[in-house]
Simulated assay, not measured.
Amino acid sequence: MRDGEEAALNRPARAVGWALHVLQGALIGLGAVLPGISGGVLCVVFGIYKPVMELLSNPLRNWRTHLPRLLPVILGAAIGFLGVANLLAFFLEAYPDQSVCLFVGLIGGMLPSLFREAGEQGRTKGSYVAMAAAFALVLGLLTGLDALSVTIAPSFGWYLFCGFCVALSIIAPGMSFSTLLMPLGLYTPFVEGLGHLDLSVLLPGGLGGLVTIICLAKAVDTLFTRFYSCAFHAIIGIVIAATLVIIPFGSFATALVPNLVCMAAGVVIALALDQFNSRFEKE
Rank of each mutant, 00 (worst) to 15 (best):
L181C: 07
V239I: 15
V191Y: 03
Y228H: 15
D221V: 07
F280W: 12
L168M: 15
C215R: 08
L244M: 15
A234T: 09
V239A: 00
A217R: 11
F252A: 10
D274I: 03
Y187V: 00
A264N: 02
G266H: 08
R279M: 11
L194R: 02
C262R: 12
V239Y: 02
I235Y: 06
T225I: 08
A253Q: 13
G237I: 03
S229F: 11
A217L: 10
F249G: 07
D274R: 04
V257Y: 08
E283N: 07
T243E: 12
M182P: 04
P173Q: 12
L199W: 15
S278W: 00
S278C: 07
L256K: 08
T225Q: 12
S176N: 02
T254P: 01
L168F: 11
I240A: 14
L180Q: 01
V191P: 14
V245C: 00
I213P: 00
L168I: 11
G209E: 09
L271T: 13
S229V: 09
L223P: 11
S169N: 08
F280D: 09
P258R: 02
E281S: 09
C215Q: 12
C262Y: 13
A172Q: 08
D221L: 01
F190H: 03
T225Y: 01
A242P: 04
F164S: 02
I171F: 04
I213E: 00
E192C: 01
P258N: 06
